[in-house]
Protein backbone atom coordinates (compact mmCIF):
# COMPACT_ATOMS: atom_id res chain seq x y z
CA UNK A 1 0.00 0.00 0.00
CA UNK A 2 2.67 2.50 1.11
CA UNK A 3 4.89 1.44 -1.78
CA UNK A 4 2.11 1.99 -4.28
CA UNK A 5 1.45 5.48 -2.93
CA UNK A 6 5.12 6.35 -3.40
CA UNK A 7 4.92 4.88 -6.87
CA UNK A 8 1.98 7.08 -7.65
CA UNK A 9 3.72 10.19 -6.32
CA UNK A 10 6.87 9.46 -8.29
CA UNK A 11 5.05 8.91 -11.53
CA UNK A 12 2.30 11.53 -11.31
CA UNK A 13 3.37 15.14 -11.89
CA UNK A 14 -0.18 16.20 -10.98
CA UNK A 15 0.17 14.71 -7.54
CA UNK A 16 3.69 16.07 -7.13
CA UNK A 17 2.44 19.55 -7.89
CA UNK A 18 -0.47 19.11 -5.50
CA UNK A 19 1.86 18.06 -2.67
CA UNK A 20 4.33 20.87 -3.27
CA UNK A 21 1.46 23.34 -3.50
CA UNK A 22 0.03 22.06 -0.20
CA UNK A 23 3.37 22.68 1.45
CA UNK A 24 3.53 26.26 0.17
CA UNK A 25 -0.10 26.98 1.05
CA UNK A 26 0.59 25.71 4.58
CA UNK A 27 3.50 28.17 4.83
CA UNK A 28 1.24 30.97 3.60
CA UNK A 29 -1.44 29.98 6.13
CA UNK A 30 1.07 29.99 8.98
CA UNK A 31 2.57 33.37 8.09
CA UNK A 32 -0.52 35.22 6.91
CA UNK A 33 -3.44 33.44 8.62
CA UNK A 34 -1.91 33.55 12.10
CA UNK A 35 -1.36 37.29 12.01
CA UNK A 36 -4.83 37.96 10.64
CA UNK A 37 -6.26 36.00 13.58
CA UNK A 38 -4.05 37.94 16.04
CA UNK A 39 -5.24 41.20 14.51
CA UNK A 40 -8.88 40.12 14.84
CA UNK A 41 -9.19 40.21 11.05
CA UNK A 42 -9.86 36.63 9.95
CA UNK A 43 -12.86 37.89 8.02
CA UNK A 44 -10.51 39.93 5.81
CA UNK A 45 -9.22 36.69 4.29
CA UNK A 46 -12.68 35.79 2.97
CA UNK A 47 -13.28 39.39 1.90
CA UNK A 48 -10.04 39.70 -0.04
CA UNK A 49 -10.50 36.33 -1.72
CA UNK A 50 -13.81 37.61 -3.08
CA UNK A 51 -12.43 41.03 -3.96
CA UNK A 52 -9.84 39.13 -6.02
CA UNK A 53 -12.71 37.54 -7.89
CA UNK A 54 -14.09 40.96 -8.86
CA UNK A 55 -10.61 42.12 -9.86
CA UNK A 56 -10.12 39.06 -12.04
CA UNK A 57 -13.49 39.66 -13.69
CA UNK A 58 -12.49 43.24 -14.44
CA UNK A 59 -9.17 42.05 -15.88
CA UNK A 60 -10.89 39.56 -18.14
CA UNK A 61 -13.41 42.14 -19.31
CA UNK A 62 -10.69 44.66 -20.14
CA UNK A 63 -8.85 41.95 -22.10
CA UNK A 64 -11.96 40.65 -23.87
CA UNK A 65 -13.12 44.11 -24.88
CA UNK A 66 -9.69 44.87 -26.30
CA UNK A 67 -9.72 48.02 -24.19
CA UNK A 68 -6.54 47.10 -22.25
CA UNK A 69 -5.17 43.76 -23.46
CA UNK A 70 -2.21 44.01 -21.06
CA UNK A 71 -4.48 44.04 -18.04
CA UNK A 72 -4.32 40.46 -16.81
CA UNK A 73 -6.86 38.93 -14.40
CA UNK A 74 -4.12 38.39 -11.79
CA UNK A 75 -3.24 42.08 -11.91
CA UNK A 76 -6.91 42.93 -11.42
CA UNK A 77 -7.15 40.51 -8.50
CA UNK A 78 -4.10 42.01 -6.79
CA UNK A 79 -5.30 45.60 -7.32
CA UNK A 80 -8.72 44.84 -5.85
CA UNK A 81 -7.13 42.98 -2.93
CA UNK A 82 -4.85 45.93 -2.17
CA UNK A 83 -7.73 48.41 -2.41
CA UNK A 84 -9.71 46.37 0.07
CA UNK A 85 -6.70 46.09 2.37
CA UNK A 86 -6.06 49.84 2.28
CA UNK A 87 -9.70 50.59 3.04
CA UNK A 88 -9.65 48.16 5.96
CA UNK A 89 -6.32 49.40 7.29
CA UNK A 90 -7.55 52.98 7.05
CA UNK A 91 -10.65 52.14 9.08
CA UNK A 92 -8.42 50.53 11.72
CA UNK A 93 -5.79 53.26 11.97
CA UNK A 94 -6.69 53.89 15.59
CA UNK A 95 -6.11 50.22 16.28
CA UNK A 96 -9.72 49.20 16.78
CA UNK A 97 -10.56 45.81 15.25
CA UNK A 98 -14.35 46.23 15.17
CA UNK A 99 -14.09 49.16 12.77
CA UNK A 100 -12.02 47.07 10.39
CA UNK A 101 -14.55 44.27 10.55
CA UNK A 102 -17.26 46.67 9.34
CA UNK A 103 -15.02 47.99 6.57
CA UNK A 104 -14.33 44.43 5.40
CA UNK A 105 -18.05 43.65 5.39
CA UNK A 106 -18.81 46.68 3.22
CA UNK A 107 -15.92 46.04 0.83
CA UNK A 108 -16.89 42.36 0.63
CA UNK A 109 -20.44 43.19 -0.44
CA UNK A 110 -19.22 45.84 -2.86
CA UNK A 111 -16.71 43.58 -4.57
CA UNK A 112 -19.13 40.67 -4.89
CA UNK A 113 -21.64 43.02 -6.50
CA UNK A 114 -18.96 44.30 -8.87
CA UNK A 115 -17.99 40.72 -9.72
CA UNK A 116 -21.56 39.74 -10.57
CA UNK A 117 -22.10 42.98 -12.46
CA UNK A 118 -18.97 42.48 -14.60
CA UNK A 119 -19.64 38.81 -15.24
CA UNK A 120 -22.87 39.78 -16.94
CA UNK A 121 -20.83 41.51 -19.65
CA UNK A 122 -18.21 38.80 -20.07
CA UNK A 123 -18.29 36.42 -23.02
CA UNK A 124 -19.71 33.11 -21.72
CA UNK A 125 -16.51 31.31 -22.70
CA UNK A 126 -14.63 33.27 -20.08
CA UNK A 127 -16.93 32.60 -17.15
CA UNK A 128 -15.21 29.30 -16.18
CA UNK A 129 -11.98 31.28 -15.62
CA UNK A 130 -13.80 33.35 -13.02
CA UNK A 131 -15.15 30.27 -11.32
CA UNK A 132 -11.57 29.01 -11.27
CA UNK A 133 -10.82 31.81 -8.83
CA UNK A 134 -13.57 30.58 -6.57
CA UNK A 135 -13.27 26.81 -6.88
CA UNK A 136 -9.65 26.18 -7.87
CA UNK A 137 -8.45 22.65 -7.45
CA UNK A 138 -5.27 21.29 -5.93
CA UNK A 139 -5.22 18.67 -8.68
CA UNK A 140 -5.49 21.14 -11.55
CA UNK A 141 -2.36 23.21 -10.95
CA UNK A 142 0.19 24.07 -13.63
CA UNK A 143 3.83 24.94 -13.12
CA UNK A 144 3.11 28.65 -13.16
CA UNK A 145 0.78 28.24 -10.19
CA UNK A 146 3.55 26.48 -8.29
CA UNK A 147 5.99 29.29 -9.03
CA UNK A 148 3.39 31.83 -7.88
CA UNK A 149 2.80 29.95 -4.62
CA UNK A 150 6.52 29.50 -3.98
CA UNK A 151 7.21 33.19 -4.53
CA UNK A 152 4.33 34.19 -2.26
CA UNK A 153 5.32 31.78 0.49
CA UNK A 154 9.00 32.78 0.47
CA UNK A 155 8.23 36.53 0.50
CA UNK A 156 5.81 36.09 3.39
CA UNK A 157 8.29 34.03 5.40
CA UNK A 158 10.94 36.69 4.90
CA UNK A 159 8.61 39.54 5.90
CA UNK A 160 7.42 37.69 9.00
CA UNK A 161 11.00 36.88 10.07
CA UNK A 162 11.87 40.56 9.73
CA UNK A 163 8.78 42.10 11.33
CA UNK A 164 7.16 39.50 13.56
CA UNK A 165 7.56 41.57 16.74
CA UNK A 166 6.25 44.71 15.08
CA UNK A 167 3.17 42.93 13.74
CA UNK A 168 2.48 41.44 17.16
CA UNK A 169 2.93 44.81 18.91
CA UNK A 170 0.59 46.50 16.45
CA UNK A 171 -1.99 43.78 17.10
CA UNK A 172 -1.81 44.10 20.88
CA UNK A 173 -1.47 47.81 21.42
CA UNK A 174 -1.31 50.01 18.35
CA UNK A 175 -1.69 53.27 20.26
CA UNK A 176 0.94 52.37 22.85
CA UNK A 177 3.35 51.26 20.13
CA UNK A 178 2.95 54.59 18.34
CA UNK A 179 3.38 56.50 21.59
CA UNK A 180 6.68 54.70 22.27
CA UNK A 181 8.03 55.92 18.94
CA UNK A 182 7.48 52.87 16.73
CA UNK A 183 5.98 53.69 13.32
CA UNK A 184 3.02 51.48 14.12
CA UNK A 185 0.88 52.88 11.34
CA UNK A 186 3.40 51.82 8.71
CA UNK A 187 3.59 48.27 10.07
CA UNK A 188 -0.19 48.16 10.34
CA UNK A 189 -0.54 48.92 6.61
CA UNK A 190 2.37 46.65 5.68
CA UNK A 191 0.90 43.70 7.52
CA UNK A 192 -2.58 44.03 6.02
CA UNK A 193 -1.49 44.84 2.46
CA UNK A 194 1.04 42.00 2.35
CA UNK A 195 -1.56 39.56 3.64
CA UNK A 196 -4.05 40.77 1.02
CA UNK A 197 -1.61 40.32 -1.87
CA UNK A 198 -0.75 36.85 -0.60
CA UNK A 199 -4.42 35.92 -0.36
CA UNK A 200 -5.14 37.15 -3.90
CA UNK A 201 -2.21 35.23 -5.39
CA UNK A 202 -3.02 32.09 -3.43
CA UNK A 203 -6.64 32.33 -4.55
CA UNK A 204 -5.47 32.51 -8.15
CA UNK A 205 -3.55 29.26 -7.69
CA UNK A 206 -5.80 27.12 -5.52
CA UNK A 207 -9.18 28.89 -5.48
CA UNK A 208 -10.84 31.22 -3.00
CA UNK A 209 -12.73 28.47 -1.20
CA UNK A 210 -9.56 26.63 -0.20
CA UNK A 211 -7.92 29.94 0.72
CA UNK A 212 -10.38 30.89 3.37
CA UNK A 213 -10.76 27.38 4.68
CA UNK A 214 -7.01 26.88 5.03
CA UNK A 215 -5.92 30.41 5.94
CA UNK A 216 -8.45 30.96 8.72
CA UNK A 217 -9.54 27.75 10.46
CA UNK A 218 -6.11 26.21 11.26
CA UNK A 219 -4.79 29.54 12.59
CA UNK A 220 -7.92 30.08 14.67
CA UNK A 221 -7.73 26.50 15.97
CA UNK A 222 -4.11 26.75 17.06
CA UNK A 223 -4.73 30.19 18.60
CA UNK A 224 -7.38 28.57 20.81
CA UNK A 225 -5.06 25.97 22.30
CA UNK A 226 -1.45 27.13 21.96
CA UNK A 227 0.10 29.74 24.20
CA UNK A 228 2.94 31.38 22.34
CA UNK A 229 3.10 33.29 19.08
CA UNK A 230 5.62 30.86 17.58
CA UNK A 231 3.54 27.94 18.81
CA UNK A 232 0.47 29.26 17.00
CA UNK A 233 2.44 29.84 13.78
CA UNK A 234 3.91 26.32 13.81
CA UNK A 235 0.62 24.75 14.91
CA UNK A 236 -1.16 26.52 12.08
CA UNK A 237 1.39 25.19 9.57
CA UNK A 238 0.96 21.61 10.81
CA UNK A 239 -2.85 21.72 10.86
CA UNK A 240 -3.09 23.38 7.44
CA UNK A 241 -0.74 20.84 5.86
CA UNK A 242 -2.55 17.97 7.54
CA UNK A 243 -5.94 19.19 6.32
CA UNK A 244 -4.72 19.40 2.74
CA UNK A 245 -3.00 15.99 2.85
CA UNK A 246 -6.17 14.43 4.21
CA UNK A 247 -8.08 16.21 1.45
CA UNK A 248 -5.75 14.85 -1.23
CA UNK A 249 -5.69 11.33 0.16
CA UNK A 250 -9.44 11.06 0.54
CA UNK A 251 -10.07 12.56 -2.88
CA UNK A 252 -8.64 9.30 -4.25
CA UNK A 253 -10.73 7.17 -1.96
CA UNK A 254 -14.11 8.84 -2.50
CA UNK A 255 -13.63 10.90 -5.67
CA UNK A 256 -14.29 14.29 -4.10
CA UNK A 257 -12.66 17.68 -4.53
CA UNK A 258 -9.56 17.74 -2.30
CA UNK A 259 -10.17 21.45 -1.55
CA UNK A 260 -13.65 20.71 -0.25
CA UNK A 261 -12.45 17.87 1.98
CA UNK A 262 -9.54 19.99 3.24
CA UNK A 263 -11.98 22.77 4.07
CA UNK A 264 -14.24 20.44 6.01
CA UNK A 265 -11.29 18.91 7.88
CA UNK A 266 -9.96 22.37 8.75
CA UNK A 267 -13.34 23.46 10.08
CA UNK A 268 -13.56 20.29 12.18
CA UNK A 269 -10.10 21.06 13.57
CA UNK A 270 -11.40 24.40 14.79
CA UNK A 271 -14.40 22.75 16.45
CA UNK A 272 -12.06 20.22 18.08
CA UNK A 273 -9.77 23.00 19.32
CA UNK A 274 -12.68 24.77 21.01
CA UNK A 275 -13.60 21.49 22.71
CA UNK A 276 -10.01 20.99 23.88
CA UNK A 277 -10.00 24.49 25.31
CA UNK A 278 -13.29 23.88 27.10
CA UNK A 279 -12.10 20.59 28.59
CA UNK A 280 -8.98 22.27 29.96
CA UNK A 281 -11.05 24.62 32.08
Amino acid sequence: MIASIFDLILTSPILQRALVASLFVAFIAATSGSFMVFRGLSFLTAGVAHAALAGAALGLLLQASGFAPWFSPVLGAVIFAVLMAVLTAYAGERGIAQKMEVAVGVAFALSMSIAVFLMYYLPPAMIPQIWGYLFGDLLLLDNLDIVLLAGTALSLILIVILFKKEFVYVSIDMEGSTAHGMSARGYHYLMIIVAAIAIALTAKAVGAVLVYAILVAPAAASNEVLKTVNGVIIGCFVLALLAMLIGLASSFAILASPSAIAGIVAALMYVAAIQVKRLRR
Binding site: G40, V168, I172, V229
Partner: peptide, 9 residues
Protein backbone atom coordinates in the same frame (compact mmCIF):
# COMPACT_ATOMS: atom_id res chain seq x y z
CA UNK B 1 -7.18 49.77 23.93
CA UNK B 2 -5.30 46.54 24.69
CA UNK B 3 -6.23 43.43 22.69
CA UNK B 4 -6.10 40.06 24.41
CA UNK B 5 -6.24 37.58 21.54
CA UNK B 6 -2.51 37.41 20.92
CA UNK B 7 -0.87 34.59 22.92
CA UNK B 8 1.81 36.67 24.65
CA UNK B 9 3.50 35.71 27.89
Amino acid sequence: HIQHNVPMK
